[in-house]
Amino acid sequence: MPVYEQGYEAYDGRRNPLGSRWKPLFREEILPYFKKRRFVFLLVLALLPWLYGVALTFLHTQLGDADWAKDLVTKLPVVDEKLVAKLLTNGYDLFLLFIVAIWVGSGLVARDRKDMTLDVFLGRAVTSVQYLWAKGAALGVFLLLFSFLPTLILVIFQVGLTGEAGWLAEHLRVLWGTLLYTAIGPGTLVLFMLALSSMARSPRVVGLAFIALVFFGDMACGVVYAITKVSAVWFFSLSRELTALACLCLGAPPPFASADLHPALVALFFAGLAAASAAVLWARFSRRGVLR
């Protein structure tokens, strides 16, 4: 029996507005990761340093007034913008941030190019801008989980354990500073990964390119600094710039020479990286007539 005798039915139901067509792509990009145990484990790993912050919060709020613990507790660091900046940009957390950027980000566009589904998606009523927004937002959510979410949890613990919002009023910068850092720093990283991913057909090659650019950049800066002792060379180090950005956003003193912390230099770095990434994306996608 010919298969088409099952009958074709027309569809005359409603259709969602054109502007919302990116949502299924976004959802399909994000959900599979939460089903992977290794990824959830990575998320847990990233939160470990923040347990230190939670422990400090507990000790300060619950044992700060106890006579037997007062001496010990006063020697411990307080939970403030400085501590959050350290937690955001310590080597361990930055390494995990880069791992997530590679794991999620390398396949954003490259996988669709490899599977030849890019034309299938863009052959729907999805513009290039919507497509890139969906993909970028997916990576952005994960990077947010690794930066803003731990801060939020720490703040909730701080407020919850003290039972008052006084600390929050005093340290509101912890929240908006982290949000600003996430928007600029990891936000630029999202654009950068999108651009890299659009240039290859293999997520593996994209990952290798990211490692080469970022790790090599750090290594080259380290070598030149070791020889010249000129700290300005760290301008080209992504991890250093992320640290500087976090310190600026949170008003914390940086772990390196403050001369390198000029806001204009940090802004120039991220603006430059974002502009270069946007230029690559424009070049890759403007050939398609569906940029609008």
Partner: peptide, 29 residues
């Protein structure tokens, strides 16, 4: 004024750069 001589530079480059970075990253690639 430089903080090191040629011998030290060579040692650092071989230890930190070649064995600590170049070889792992190249073999990873």
């Amino acid at each position: 004024q430089v903080p090191m001589g040629g011998v030290t530079l060579y040692g650092i480059l071989v230890l930190a750069y070649v064995t600590g970075f170049l070889v792992p990253i190249a073999t990873l690639f």
